[in-house]
Nucleic acid binder design. Structure first.
Length: 265
DNA sequence: AAGGACTTCAACCGCACATAC
DNA sequence: CGTATGTGCGGTTGAAGTCCT
């Protein structure tokens, strides 16, 4: 099935290679990745091309944007429910890929490990240490926010301030976990009850047929809506027009609550 | 200012599952 | 029905960037 047995290229992608992949998707859709190589268009494997498309070239990706507190909260909750099903979790976050979620989670885990390591090496009686212990014992899959610890990850001094620490807590009580039983209890979720890839909105026979052809949820982002009747469901998190500076305050979610309400967590 | 520590992110690998033949 | 091939996913790694001392 393979075409030429040329050497497979690896490593960083060039703009020309990206262009080839984009053109391929325009012509054939996000599939038949292996044909890119078999046709001699690129010396990349089909897997590599697909990955490049999914993680970098696909439209409406929030590449380069830090996770907001809201996204962070969703990831924490969904990870607790689904485990390390990054692709599944990513479907609830507009513009995020499984790789994004995976990397985000992984770096938070490392950070927590570091904090715990440092906290055990320092005084066991500090307020921050108590908070961390409570956090870890009661919510083992949860790690602190990147925002709270970013500045000095190797030291606990920056979390001595309780308010700061509060921002790092996942606040399980703030989220009704019943809402996260998507399979059995989706009606409670209102606008947020469907992942991005949920295609139940395409109810007409014509739309179903189209869907069979265009399985990729981002097809419409690239080539526009096919049918005026087609109404794509809102993702779990509504897309933001921009990211990072200005529009989204990472801590805004927590600002809506009195700080003392977290004392019981 | 320089060097080390740490974080982030892109990309690869291997496995599992789906589909075609 | 078995095998080959394609695709999707999770884990891991290493380079580059950022922060800290």
């Amino acid at each position: 099935m393979e075409g030429k047995r040329e050497e497979i290229r690896k490593g960083p992608w060039k703009a020309e290679e990206d262009e080839v992949v984009i053109n391929h998707v325009k012509k054939y859709g996000p599939r038949d990745w292996s044909s890119i190589r078999s046709k001699g268009l690129l010396q990349r494997t089909g897997k590599s091309c697909r990955l490049r498309w999914v993680n970098k070239l696909r439209p409406n990706l929030k590449s380069g944007c830090k996770f907001t507190s809201e996204e962070e909260r969703v990831v924490i909750e969904l990870q607790a429910q689904f485990g390390n099903k990054w692709a599944k979790i990513a479907t609830y976050l507009h513009g995020r890929t499984d790789n994004d979620v995976k990397n985000f989670w992984s770096s938070r885990q490392k950070r927590l490990a570091r904090i715990l390591q440092n906290s055990s090496a320092t005084s066991s009686n500090t307020e921050s240490h108590k908070i961390i212990n409570r956090e870890v014992s009661g919510f083992t899959n949860v790690v602190p926010s990147s925002e709270g610890l970013k500045k000095s990850p190797s030291s606990l001094s920056n979390i001595d301030n309780y308010d700061e620490m509060v921002k790092m807590v996942p606040l399980p009580d703030l989220v009704d976990t019943n809402l996260l039983h998507f399979e059995t209890n989706q009606s409670h979720l209102g606008d947020f009850n469907q992942p991005q890839q949920d295609m139940t909105a395409f109810s007409s026979a014509g739309s179903q047929q189209l869907l069979a052809s265009f399985e990729d949820p981002y097809w419409f982002d690239v080539f526009g809506a096919i049918d005026g009747d087609v109404a794509v469901e809102q993702p779990f998190l509504k897309p933001t027009t921009s990211c990072g500076d200005g529009s989204v305050n990472p801590d805004a979610f927590f600002d809506d609550f009195p700080t003392d309400m977290f004392d019981q967590i």
